[in-house]
Nucleic acid binder design. Sequence first.
DNA 1: CACTCGTGGTA
DNA 2: TTACCAAGAGT
Length: 359
Amino acid sequence: MVSVLDAPSKTDSTESAAALLAWYDRHRRILPWRALPGETPDPYRVWLSEIMLQQTTVTAVKPYYERFLARFPTVEALAQAPQEAVMQAWAGLGYYSRARNLHACAKMVVAVHGGRFPAEEKALLSLPGIGAYTAGAIAAIAFGKVAVAVDGNVERVMSRLHAVTEPLPSAKPLIRELTLAMVPQRRPGDFAQALMDLGATICTPKKPACVLCPLALPCRARAAALAETFPRKETKTTGRLRRGAAFVALRADGRVLLRTRPPKGLLGGMAEVPVSDWRHDYAISEALRDAPLAGPWRRAPGTVRHVFTHFPLELAVFTATFGIDTAPPAGGRWVPRHDLAGEALPNVMRKVLEKALGG
DNA sequence: CACTCGTGGTA
DNA sequence: TTACCAAGAGT
């Protein structure tokens, strides 16, 4: 193994974990989904927050979490809700397969587990939307199991603590082992959250506050003055620009033509205005052949730009007005402008509607 | 295992 | 502006 200069001793791990927990007791973040000291964590809330927090910032999650919990207070309430209501509550948060899997998971917890989340990592892993990280997080935080939850924060903290030179993602198994070796028997849930808080507030990607770090002494990256250079990563490629056309059909009675995207894939199950294919060689000059209805289409000035994880997108927006007796094309529906806020519209579609209708 | 899957914030 | 990043999972 190229990665570790030398192995940590059991004593080092124990002392580091104790130092981290002592720091956590003083500096832990207060978060809506986090139980206060002495409180019993609610597995439903822990699970919901962990799903929302996947690749999503705490700031972005907070308002969604509060609204979602108010609307679906229990796993039973969520399981009984219509899919459309769940997607609507998630709209704008991104990664919509999470919402579909969340709903499926709630139904499974009710149907298979009697409405109680299983406490074992293995059983949690078998539920939709719960992978290695989330299974470990729920087992440790909600049920006090000795388990690790290795997310981006933990990868950063552990790769620095041990100066892991092997790049991610190939270093994942090693980092998982290093973390597991450090988990204390006593407070595994607090330990998991402490690692994440440390990564989020002290051991940050840029300019880590090593002076304030409870693990500064044993940290090998800091000893070499190389903390900022960890974790090492394989260079990634950015996708090519794709172009396409979006068609905002407005009916004289103030309704807008919407449709629902296929259940899987990009923006799966979300609402949209009719759009063309999105390709790097899309010819906007011939966009009208992709229009959902024949009509007096006019192109709005400029374009709508949006960046997905793996490609940037540039949409030409076309608008046209139709008579009040115009029937929707197959798969389409006329939605009153006033009701657009209640639709499961991803942000790229809100941008399109903003340009076409001016808010 | 490489790719797919959103969005908003920051340097 | 570009690039990177944020409590990853499914395929």
